[in-house]
């Protein structure tokens, strides 16, 4: 074992900085959060409370509302993000290289832009009196909608923002995956008389499965961790109509100072995401082949 490590030392040295950062900024906080979830954490006199924080979570009506809201968000946003990325990449892929570069950059731009900036723009779009959305409705002779301030519309508005923000990362990954599909497969299909749509359905889509799986998992994790849009656009309201799990964790920890309870909710979210990722992995990878 040690010999093996020594032989591959240059490789290990390359990953060492990233690994050290991962340990300090990801692994230790997760471990600390796990330990805190069994405590009533206080600055000076922390008390071990066993599973009390988990019991509190299961009996907390706001936590369950947050779970429902998060699921509602994830169920729409996760597939939409993946499908939109797939459609955009499929439309960009046949274009000339210069056009491809332009669209890659254009669709990746929102990924680089801060969610804060995007949320501010969308808040303006959904502004009741002067917003673009109600201006559009008014031009059609329709009544204005209280987009961000009614329970019926607030979560739909947050979801709309997420769905309509181009999934730049997905587009880039799909384009990379599409470019690695051998041309010979398409040539053979063309000889066999398959049109473009059939080729996409029979060749492109199946060979993109590993990328699709990766994007589904990443998108699910992102959807379950939705926070900044909610914080900036609705602050979890009206009532608790847009309160999500991470928003609730944040409020519980940093406003209410209940770090133990927040830690318990974080652990529940952590394990829920792991379970979902495993299920997705099982469902999608049954016939995926990875080349070594």
């Amino acid at each position: 074992m040690l010999k093996q490590i020594w032989r591959g030392r240059s490789g290990y040295l390359f990953i060492l900085p990233k690994f050290a950062l991962f340990i300090v900024f990801v692994f230790i906080p997760i471990l600390w959060s796990f330990l805190v979830s069994f405590q009533e954490y206080r600055v000076f006199d922390t008390v071990w409370v066993g599973l009390d924080n988990f019991r509190d979570a299961f009996s907390d009506d706001i936590f369950w509302m947050a779970v429902q809201n998060t699921l509602r968000y994830a169920v729409v946003v996760m597939p939409s993000t993946v499908i939109i990325a797939l459609i955009l990449a499929s439309l960009i892929n046949p274009l000339r290289r210069s056009a491809q570069t332009f669209f890659r950059a254009a669709f990746y731009l929102p990924t680089v832009a801060s969610t804060v900036v995007l949320s501010m723009v969308w808040r303006w779009i959904f502004q009741t009196r002067f917003g673009l959305a109600n201006y559009f409705l008014a031009s059609l002779g329709l009544e204005p909608i209280n987009w961000l301030h009614s329970s019926e519309w607030a979560m739909r508005s947050v979801i709309t923002m997420a769905v309509l923000t181009p999934p730049g990362m997905g587009v880039i990954l799909y384009l990379a995956a599409m470019s690695s599909i051998p041309d010979s497969l398409y040539e053979a299909a063309t000889i066999d008389g398959a049109n473009r749509l059939v080729q996409w359905w029979r060749i492109t889509l199946p060979l993109l499965k590993p990328t699709t799986l990766y994007l589904m998992i990443v998108s699910t994790i992102g959807s379950f961790q939705v926070f900044d849009q909610v914080m900036l656009m609705t602050q979890g309201g009206p009532g608790y109509a847009t309160t999500t799990i991470v928003h609730r964790i944040y409020q519980t920890a940093f406003r209410d100072f209940q770090f133990g309870y927040a830690g318990a909710m974080s652990m529940l979210l952590f394990f829920a995401i792991i379970v979902l990722a495993l299920i997705q992995s099982r469902l999608v990878t049954s016939d995926v082949e990875y080349k070594g």
């Binding site: 009741t128 961000l148 602050q235 009206p238």
Partner: peptide, 24 residues
């Protein structure tokens, strides 16, 4: 009062009173 009265829009409420061009 407008439809948005009682919502969480602090900035919107202030602009509605004081912001030039939006004082309604």
């Amino acid at each position: 009062a407008p439809i948005e009265m009682g919502s969480a829009d602090v900035g919107g409420a202030f602009q509605a009173l004081a912001r030039e061009g939006q004082r309604h």
